[in-house]
């Protein structure tokens, strides 16, 4: 009973408890349908070879085994570069790229959302439009830029462009725009400079936005596989190494599923971390005006 009451957010009014329970049940069914494929991938990782091709596929393996994970490490240990190196590369690119993207795009979004200066609209519109251009035909100019900068075969080629991705700026600008002007005005009167306003007032109040961006950016960088900028084996990423395992055919299908689960674990943890920290901030909990 207590948990049912917890379903209903006490701060809100006009809620019928029955409505909330019905909603919850409908939602749970819907969510299970949505998550079915992920469950199947996880189940496959624990199936022995002969069970993988049972049709229709079962969610609970008859003889669950860890063999696929054991094989995964055996297969990986035979690569020319120590496997840890691939993990290191991906962790490095993802960590630096995500943090840099959040900070740079938030710094740029702050004036765009809150200040009136010449060129503001042009800059913002350009960034929104940039989200819509197909990447197939920009590959060549990008490659030319990279080789002109001598960034081919360096981490920079993957990390730096991530700093300037359009999505982060757009997301941060939309949220910073909602902050009440009075909040920033008050900070200014208290003598806060640009950096202090940004770091002490803006960022804590748009926590929901940068936690969301953290997840989105993490996901896209974590998934970077083979690119045309990197051909040195010791600089290649984890998804590339894993796709090599996957491409070796049906006999490796179980290992493939284990690999997918392995790739999935970290984003799932990041997701739980970011979503469970999205709570109401000062600006949205009634401290406005």
């Amino acid at each position: 009973m207590k948990s049912l009451r917890a379903l209903n957010r006490s701060s809100k009014v006009n809620r019928s408890r029955l409505g909330t329970v019905v909603l919850f049940i409908i939602l749970l069914i819907f969510a299970c349908v949505m998550a079915f494929p992920m469950a199947l991938i996880i189940a496959n990782a624990f199936k022995p070879q002969d069970e993988l091709w049972v049709f229709p596929p079962r969610l609970i393996p008859n003889n669950p085994t860890l063999e696929n994970f054991r094989n995964m490490f055996t297969v990986m240990s035979s690569s020319q570069v120590p496997f840890v190196r691939y993990i290191f590369n991906t962790v490095l690119i993802t960590a630096v790229g995500t943090v840099g993207h959040i900070i740079l795009s938030s710094m740029c979004a702050f004036p765009l959302a809150k200040k009136e200066f010449p060129g503001r609209n042009v800059i913002f519109q350009t960034i929104v439009l940039a989200l819509m251009f197909n990447a197939t035909v920009t590959a060549i100019p990008n490659f030319l830029t990279m080789s002109w900068l001598h960034w081919i075969n360096t981490y920079l080629a993957l990390i730096v462009p991530a700093f300037g991705a359009p999505i982060g700026l757009y997301l941060m600008k939309q949220f910073i725009e909602q902050l009440p002007d009075s909040l920033l005005e008050a900070a200014r009167i208290d003598g806060a400079g640009q950096w202090q306003s940004f770091w002490k007032i803006v960022m804590p109040n748009v926590k929901a936005a940068w936690l969301t961006l953290f997840l989105l950016s993490f996901q896209s960088l974590w998934g970077i596989g083979a690119t045309s900028y990197i051909y040195k084996e010791e600089l290649k990423t984890l998804p590339y190494a894993l796709s090599q395992i996957l491409s070796s055919g049906i006999s490796r299908a179980g290992v493939g599923a284990a690999v997918s689960v392995f790739m999935l674990i970290v984003p799932v943890f990041i997701f739980i971390f970011s979503q469970s920290n999205i709570i109401e901030t000062m600006a949205s909990s009634g401290m406005k005006e």
């Binding site: 795009s105 710094m107 740029c108 920009t138 100019p141 700093f163 300037g164 991705a165």
Partner: peptide, 25 residues
């Protein structure tokens, strides 16, 4: 100047790796 300075790092990367390739394409 403080606002432009705040935007500079992002815009620099954005122009080089997004605007330039799109215009060239």
């Amino acid at each position: 100047r403080e606002d432009y300075l705040f935007m500079l790092p992002y815009l620099l990367v954005f122009v080089v790796f997004t605007v330039f390739p799109v215009v060239v394409a």
